[in-house]
Each structure stands twice: as C-alpha cells, then as structure tokens.
Design a protein around this nucleic acid. Structure first.
Length: 1039
RNA sequence: AGGGCGGUGGCUCAGCCUGGUUAGAGUGCUCGGCUGAUAACCGAGUGGUCCGGGGUUCGAAUCCCCGCCGCCCUACCA
C-alpha cells in the first residue's frame, strides 16, 4: 500500500487505461475464464459513418458494465465488438466526397471499383475513430477480432443465408409497390423509412371524374399526389359506407350531380365554394358503396396519356371498385386508385385484375404521355392547371402532412411498382411472434411492443439498386429466365464459366462478382442481377455470421435503444427464423435515448449536443458511466443535466476520501492486512462487514436482471451513509490509538476488507476507480487485476439482526443531535442522562450498543423507560390489521382509541389482548409518546429520546476541554502541520489541568510553561450556561 | 389512427408489480451547528391538488375505467 493523494478522476482514467494496455489485462482476464461456462453476447453494430454521441456511449457503457459483471462471475464471455459498414449512408457521403450529383455518375465518372474502394476506406477510417472513443469510456470488448460485414467470410454467410431462405421457399421476386428514392435511384425497405416521416406541404386537390353512362354526373376524389392521376385506373369506395348523389346548383342555374360519401358532403361543398359559385345543393339519392361497384367513368387525363385510352377498354379499368381500406376521415370517401403507386391501390388493383401501371423511370421522371421526361413532382402544377381548364377541378389547396423521405439524402420518396426481391415474412409471422414470447424482455412490456410491431410488418424487400453492399447472390439465365441462388464461393467457382477472365475470388463486392458468369441448365449464360442487399440484412446476420458459424447460437444477452425494437431486434430475429426457425437471443434489454436538459432530442440544428468526450475530459469516464447508469431507469429516456455530474463527483470524492483516510492511516502505522485481526472485531466492525456483504448481494441480484439504477443507488447509499457518515465516524477515535492496539488493527482490517469488497462491487460500473483502489490495496498473493476476482458474497458476515439494531442506534443518535440542536446544547458538552422510550426491540438495541450512543451523542448515562408526565399513544398498524380484519378496521381503530393506552401496552407485553371481541396482537399497534412541553424530547422512527438538560460544572469543564481541543486542532490545520507532527502548547485564560493528558493525546502536543510561539490566537468561548471565557492558545512546532 | 411508455416539491429522480402509519432521496434556497479523511458532514425550515375525473376498497401515488399532456413506435391520409 502506498499513501493516497487527492484524485483527478480523468488522470486516474488515463493511468489505469495505460496499466491495462501495458499489461494486457483484458487478454489475461479472458484467458483466465477460458474453458468456463460461456456467456454469448452479440454487439449491436453501430454504423461507421461518424463520431459517437452520448447515446452510443450510453449503449456501450451498459454493455460494458454488464459484461464486466459477467466476467467477474467467471463466465467465458464472448464479446466481439461489431460494426455496420455497408449501405446508403456511406455511399451518400462518398458521393459527396467525389462531388457527384447522381447515381449514374458513379458508373460513368468514377467507376464502380473506385467507388467501392472509397466506401471501404471511409468505413474503416470511421471505425477507427469510434473505436478509440469507446475505449476512452473504458469499454472492454474484443476490438481486435471485431466483426465487419464487409469481409468475404461474413458476406459469404449472407449468401448462404439467402440460399437457405430460397430453399425454404421464403425468397421471392415480385412486382410490388415500394418506397423509391428518385435521387439514390433505389428501392427502400419499410424500416429504412421509419422515423423518416417529415411534415411537408403538398397539394390537396379535389377532382371530379365524369361518369361514362350517366349524364352530368361525377365522382369526386381527393388526392395529395396529382402526378399519380396519370396512372389512375379506378376509384375505390367502401362497400358498407353511405354515399350520396348531391345535386349542386351554381349561380348560373346550371346543375350537376356529384357522388360523395354522405359524411363528407358538407366539407367537400365548402371547399368547392371557395372557387365555385354554388348557390345551393341537395342530396337526391343515397346508396351503399357496394351499389356503386362497376360504374364507369371517363379518365380525366385521357388526352394527355394515350395509354389510358387503351386501358379504358379493359374490363374493370376506369370504374368504381370496392375496398375496405377506404376511410371517411378526410377527402371525399372515394379514393383515387393508381395500382402502380400505392400499396393498397396495388392490392385492390390486383384483385380487380387491373394493370400495375407505373409510367416513371428510376429518377422519377415520366416515361410516357404529355409530361414525358418531367420529374413527377414538378408536373403537379401543370396537371392541376390542365384539370382546371377541363373544368374538372373542384378545389386545389395545400395540406401539411407527414410524408416519408429518404433516410440519407432526405429526398421525398415516391411510391412506385417495381420488381424487387423479398423475404416472405408473411409466411412465418406466427412463428416469429411465438418465439418472441420465449425471450426475456427487459422491461417486460417490450414484448408487447415488439409483437405489435411484427404484426404490422410486411414482407421484407431486401434488394437495393445500389453498389456498397453484399451483392445479391442471384444469377439469372439470359436465355430461359431461370435463376439460381448461390450459397458460397466454392459453389460459385464450381459453376462459373469465365474463370480466366475473373481470376481468384478474394472479395465478394460488386466489381468482382458482377464479372462472373454461370452456365444454365438450358445451356444459356447466367448473369448476376445487379442488386445489392439491404444493409439491415447485414446486421441481421450478426448472431451467427459475427462468429463465423452456420448454426443457431442464441445470444445470452443483447441490448439496444428503443428505436431498434422494430429494427435490429427484429431483423436478426426474422433472419434466424427464416434460416433456423428460432429466435437468436435469450435476454433482450431495451434502453432509452439521451435527451438534453429540457427533454429535447439532441440535434445539430438545435445545437444542444453533448459530446461524451467532453464529459470524460471534465469528469473522467467512471463518473459519466455512473451517472448514465444511475440517473434513471435505463429503459427510459435520459435527460443529461450537466450539474448532475457534480453530484456524482461529490459521491466519488467521498468514496476516494474514505479510501484515502483508511489507507493513509494504515500506511502511517505500516499496517499489514491479516485475517487474524478479525478476532478483535467490535460491533461496528461486524456491522459494516455485514452491510457490505448485504450490499454485494443486492448489487449482484440487480446487475443480473439488469436493474442498473438499483445497483448504483445501493452503492451510493452505502458509500455515503454507511461507510462515510457512520462507520468512519464511529472508528475515528480508534485510528488515533497506539500502534499495536488490536482495537485499531481490527478497524484497519475491517476497512481493508470493506474497501476491497466495495471496489469489487463497484468495478463493473466504475472500472478505473475500482482498479486503482485494488492496485494499491492488493498484496502480492492476489490476482493482478480486480477483474480477475469474483464478485460474490461472504454469507458468514451477514447478520441481519445487527443491521436492524444498528439502524435503531443511528436513529437514536440522530435524535440526540436534533434534540441538542433544539436546546442549543452543542455536542462538545456532555449530557448527563437521556431516557429512551420505545418497544422491546428498541430497548434491546439500545442496551446492547449503548456505548455507541454514549460516544456519539456525548452522553454520560442512558436510561430506558418512560419519563414522568409523558402520555402514551396507541397507533394502529393498518397494514397488519387490514390483513386480518379487512373492512372491520375502522371499528377496531375506534376501540383502540377508547382504551387506556398504558393499560393496553402493559397487557400487550404478555402477548395478545382481546378487545371488543377482536384479538389484538402486539404487532397490530405501535406505541408512541406524547411529549409534555416541559421536557425536552425528540421522536425517532421507533420511539422517543428524552434529554436531561441539567448542567453541572463537571459537564461544563469537560465541554471546555473539547472546545480547547477543537481550537488547537483548527490551529494545527491553519499551520498546515502533518498529522504525525508533535507540538508544544500553552493555554491561558482557562483551567484545564484536569484533562491535561487527554488534550495532549488528542492534539499530539505537550503542555509547557514557556515557548516561542509559531502561532498564537485569542479565542472567545461561550458555554451553554452563559459563561464566557477569553482563551489564548499558543503553539510551537517541535523542531 | 393504433400500440407502448411517462406525468410525484423549483430541478433530477425513487416509491407503483405485491394498496396500509406523517409520500421519500438528492439538489436548490433560508437559518443554525460540526469538522485533522471529506471541494465534506449534521440539524431545522422552505417547498407536494402524487396530471384531471370517476370507480373498486375500511383505506388508493399504488389496482380498474375515462380523459388531458409529453415522448416513442407503427400506420399513413389515397
């Protein structure tokens, strides 16, 4: 052990980090647990596109704390870090770096080879940056063997998985309506769109379509995407809703009939009135939606798109059809239906055999009709104008609504029917839900949330028309159209026909595999489809691809933020369900998001981002870690409040001071820890030994769940209340005793044990501080690092009765302080006698530990019992009474209030009493005392303390002695003397000769007749009985 | 629109599952005290319609129902 200095936690971090690195501690800890029971953790991979933020820091701190705990339980923890690297975010950034504007330029200007190379560079560079930030937080993961989805091995397992999906009949190619980004020129999956809805203004247009076979009659529809009218093929109504024929009369007395849902008539007419002079309107006919089925109308843009003239000849085209998805929340109740541009439109269109018509290209430009080559959104205005000219426009305004945008480039998305590859989740949904129920979700209600999400999810579109990703391992025959799914490089090499051209296959990215050609059964040549896989497919593979296996190995633990419930929690489950038929994790903890002090999301635009590096720089990693795991329940959103960091600092300072106090005294006395001193334990030692083990027990239980907040709160309470404020106060005198005093040595041994134990319990959340303490405390025969030790409980030290008793003693002492304060009688002056009233339990504790009360309260004598003039009060214990008597409680309470309290208490001492036919057990009531005004009494949780306020000269003298001691001590401090340093003293103006020896011992001094003072001070001392003394104290250093 | 979570002193949060004495902690503010581990500590005071309403119960912050507000997820308004 070496002397401990005041600490800067940031500097401590660095020192310990260096120690770990230089001595390969992480590797040694792993090695030590090798062969033990495995604990499989899968790291949810952060995306390598920038620096970490507070939320990612929190995420890794949670993981690290849990895994450190597991290692300290002896588990062989599989703890690979992971990274997410493919996909659009990096492509977009690299596009920016190259300064290109659209997708085509990647091929025409840059070249796919070079583009891919750059993406890879970008990913690896940011991986490096983020890794260092994580390490800075003290995160121990297997960084060296981290999994990366851009390696050949990982990608190959992706292929294998897709082949499995194919074999299991769950991979399909289909024409469907998907989200389409016209800038990135690719389809997007549902989960890429989640959270990307933004409030935007769009046109809100009411249009009437003329009926083909009824004069002067129109159906009225509403749309926010006028550009899709070009592709309109039907109007959908709800079969069960009421629709009306409304006769509208204009100012010029012309009349026409509009078909509108009954509920929306007024709303639509009001809109129409804004641009039309409507004199009157009346409902002339009411029908059910289903009666409208089959009515033919004339497409409003026939002249602008010849293709529609062809469609008009088809059986169901340009007619009213039925669909359950129609609502009456807005619009007209008649839904403009373009099967190529809306999911529900698509579904209903298929039912009615309508063509899936989508006349736009990858960039979102029309391929046919009057506006050919125009970007669809830009055609909106002209289309509205055209409709107006044709007299078909009822109203055109703007509406603010949320609309999906590309998650990377923020371009508004289009809905577009294209051919894509899907995993048919719909076929295995029930299994997913079933297996979700086998997961231990923390908190438990995540299960509901998860299952709810799965219920609404559609088939998974896994193909992207992009570059930086795992290429879709599908080769299609140019001759017969047949396709195969390749599951490995080996298989590829077997089947490829242009080996000479391609050479060795070392990499599976697009530039390599696109060159590969295969031979079809029919004799034709097969070429790969151009697509790459959705990046969420990558991370979904993690449970098995991260460790390079092709079998299900359920993770013992995973944890991510609540945005991942429908993302990574789902994507990996979906894939494992497809490939292995089960869920790939056992325990799943969901955590919250970090917010700013006001509870707002941290964002660049708000300028309220807290950088974890800054917090670490100011407070050190452990304090941030402790804060993040104690500020709230981990699954709730966390408001980061800078000032709260100061609270944590003060906790850690207290911890460090307790540790410094203990060690520095031990060093002073050259103490060598030895269990033989346990023979000399005093009650307070036994108590803190019991406490620290109880705390260990609670900590382990809560870490296991994990409930980090209860774990950290328990530690905090122990450090502040039990260790610093109580135990150290109790043993302070003992530390001043002679060198070989066993009383002192027992206290040292106790402190030594407690600090080691405490460091161990603290280690998962505050690894640097704990390691620093351990390194100084450890003896040669102990493990090299604290993390090679077990976190466990020494049951034999736990004494619950002692803990309960001590709690009472503390209460009593606190009550004494309160009482002294009330009567202005400071602790320095002894009190002759106190009387304590309370239950048998209180009496027992007080008698047993009276010496503590006397010492701490500066009390000469303790009596137990009642004080004359006080009155007993019976307080019903509702909880106990209620358990037995339920609704009769009020009656019993009334009876209790009527009996003589003193009489009842006496009887209860011998057991149960009968009262009005009810049995009253001693634990059914609490006894209280009403304190008469003329007695100084103070209540505590289980009784009352009465203080005898008589003062005599002896007490005053003793008090004065303490006054003098305190002043000398304070002067020593002013003089900046070492604790050990001896002094000469002279006190004038007061006679304390009687206590000469005590004073000399307490202040390490010697009274002398004459001295040359180094420091001299005159003090005014006022005693509680009003006497005043002017005292001159002189001190000379021993030279 | 559907689902989930949250709403407790000025601020940050416990307590709620499993109903029970006077609803707690930390922090802030005011006053007093203590101090040779402590940038500490102790005491007193200040500060609460436990979001609102209804119900169940002898008894509700806690259980149930209906609202309101905030956040998140899902769905998007064709």
């Amino acid at each position: 052990m070496e002397k401990v200095e005041p600490v800067n936690f940031r500097e401590l971090d660095k020192k310990i980090k260096k120690f770990w690195e230089e001595n390969n501690i992480y590797q040694k800890v792993k090695k030590k647990n090798e062969g033990n029971k495995e604990f499989y953790f899968v790291d949810g991979p952060p995306y390598c596109s920038g620096a970490i933020h507070l939320g990612t820091a929190w995420n890794k701190i949670i993981k690290d704390t849990y895994l450190r705990f597991k290692r300290m339980q002896g588990y062989n923890v599989l703890d690979k870090a992971g990274w997410d690297m493919h996909g659009l975010p990096i492509e977009v950034k690299v596009e920016n770096e190259f300064g290109i504007k659209n997708k085509k330029e990647i091929e025409t200007k840059i070249g796919v080879d070079k583009f891919i190379e750059k993406c890879k560079e970008f990913a690896l560079k940011h991986k490096e940056i983020m890794e260092n930030q994580f390490k800075n937080l003290g995160v121990w993961l297997d960084w060296e063997n981290a999994y990366m989805p851009i390696t050949k091995e990982y990608m190959e397992i992706g292929w294998w998985s897709l082949k499995k999906a194919h074999e299991n009949g769950l991979l399909t190619k289909d024409l469907r309506v998907v989200y389409w980004c016209p800038r990135c020129e690719t389809a997007l999956a549902e989960h890429e769109v989640r959270g990307e809805y933004k409030e935007v203004y769009d046109p809100s247009v009411y249009v009437k379509f003329k009926l083909a076979d009824e004069e002067n009659t129109y159906v009225v529809i509403w749309t926010t995407t006028p550009w899709t009218l070009i592709a309109n093929l039907a109007v959908t109504v709800h079969p069960e809703y009421d629709y009306t024929y409304v006769e509208v009369e204009f100012d010029d007395n012309k009349k026409e009939v509009w078909i509108i849902a009954e509920k929306l008539v007024e709303e639509v007419i009001n809109k129409a009135k804004k641009t039309h002079n409507i004199k009157n309107y009346k409902i002339i006919k009411k029908v059910k939606g289903k009666e409208l089925e089959g009515i033919k109308y004339i497409h409003p843009l026939l002249e602008e798109n010849d293709k529609q003239k062809d469609f008009a000849k088809l059986e169901n085209a340009h007619t009213i059809i039925l669909g359950e998805h129609v609502t009456l929340d807005g619009g007209t109740g008649l839904v403009h239906t373009a099967p190529g541009h809306g999911e529900e439109d698509f579904e209903v269109g298929k039912k009615y055999n309508l063509p899936i018509y989508s006349p736009i290209d990858d960039e979102g430009k029309y391929t046919e009709g009057k506006w050919r080559g125009v970007f669809v959104k830009e055609a909106d205005v002209e289309i509205i104008e055209t409709l107006k000219d044709k007299g078909l426009l009822i109203y055109a305004g703007k509406i603010k609504h949320s609309y999906p945008h590309c998650w990377r480039c923020k371009t508004p998305l289009l809905f577009r029917a294209t051919e894509q590859w899907f995993l048919e989740i719909s076929k295995i949904k029930e299994n997913i839900i079933g297996h979700a129920k086998t997961v231990n979700w923390i908190p438990h209600w995540v299960e509901t949330r998860y299952i709810n999400g799965v219920k609404f999810v559609g088939d998974w579109n896994i193909s992207r028309q992009r570059y930086w990703g795992i290429p879709l391992p599908v080769w299609v025959c140019e001759k017969c159209g047949k396709y195969i799914v390749v599951g490995s490089v080996e298989e590829l090499e077997e089947k490829m026909i242009n080996k000479d051209e391609v050479g060795e296959i070392n990499d599976l990215h697009k530039p390599t595999v696109d060159k590969i050609k295969l031979r079809c059964e029919c004799g034709g040549e097969m070429k790969r489809v151009g697509d790459v896989l959705d990046v969420w497919f990558d991370s979904g593979l993690a449970p098995y691809a991260s460790i390079g296996i092709k079998e299900l190995k359920k993770a013992d633990f995973i944890t991510e933020g609540h945005d991942q419930v429908t993302k990574w929690f789902y994507s990996q489950h979906a894939l494992s369900e497809i490939v292995f038929g089960d869920v790939p994790y056992k325990k799943c903890l969901m955590h919250g998001f970090t917010l700013d002090e006001k509870g707002d999301k941290m964002s660049k635009s708000l300028g309220n981002i807290v950088n974890p590096d800054d917090v670490v720089e100011k407070y050190g990693a452990d304090l941030l870690r402790f804060y993040l795991l104690s500020a709230n329940k981990v699954w709730e959103d966390l408001r980061f409040v800078w000032s709260e960091m100061d609270d944590v600092l003060s906790l850690f300072n207290t911890l460090w001071n307790a540790y410094m106090f203990a060690v520095n005294y031990m060093v002073l006395d050259d103490f060598k820890p030895d269990e033989k001193y346990f023979k000399y334990l005093k009650d307070e030692d036994k108590w803190i030994l019991s406490r620290v083990n109880t705390i260990a027990k609670i900590a382990i239980k809560n870490l296991e769940v994990p409930y980090f907040h209860t774990y950290t709160w328990t530690l905090k309470d122990f450090i502040l209340n039990d260790l610093s404020r109580w135990y150290i106060r109790l043993i302070r005198d003992r530390t001043w005793k002679e060198k070989e005093d066993v009383d002192k040595l027992a206290a040292y041994q106790t402190l030594y044990y407690v600090l080691l134990k405490l460091a161990t319990i603290l280690a998962p959340v505050a690894p640097h501080t704990a390691e620093a303490m351990y390194q100084n405390l450890k003896t040669d025969d102990m493990e090299e690092s604290i993390f090679m030790n077990r976190i466990d409980v020494d049951e034999e030290f736990i004494d619950e009765e002692l803990e309960r008793d001590m709690a009472i003693v503390r209460d009593v002492v606190d009550a004494i302080y309160r009482g002294r304060d009330r009567i202005k009688y400071t602790l320095r002056y002894p009190i002759k006698e106190i009387t304590i009233a309370g239950s048998e339990e209180v009496k027992k504790a007080v008698e047993k530990y009276s010496y503590i009360i006397k010492e701490q309260g500066n009390i000469k004598n303790i009596k137990f019992g009642e004080v004359e003039g006080s009155k007993y009060i019976i307080k019903p214990n509702y909880r106990e009474l209620g358990k037995r008597y339920r609704s009769e409680v009020p009656k019993i309470v009334k009876l209790l209030n009527e009996v003589d309290p003193k009489d009842l208490i006496e009887k209860l001492k011998d057991g149960s009493v009968e009262l009005g036919g009810y049995e009253i057990k001693p634990n059914y009531v609490d006894v209280r005392l009403e304190i008469p005004d003329y007695i100084s009494g103070v209540e505590f949780s289980k009784g009352t303390v009465f203080i005898n306020t008589e003062i005599d000269d002896e007490l005053i003298k003793e008090g004065l002695m303490r006054e003098v001691i305190r002043r000398i001590q304070s002067m020593r401090k002013d003089m900046d003397l070492d604790i050990e340093e001896k002094i000469k003293i002279k006190v004038e103006g007061i006679d304390i000769n009687e206590f000469k020896n005590i004073v000399e011992r307490e202040v390490r001094g010697q009274f002398v007749e004459a001295l040359t003072p180094d420091y001299e001070k005159i003090w005014e001392i006022k005693t509680p009985n009003g006497e005043k003394y002017t005292v001159k104290i002189s001190i000379e250093k021993n030279k």
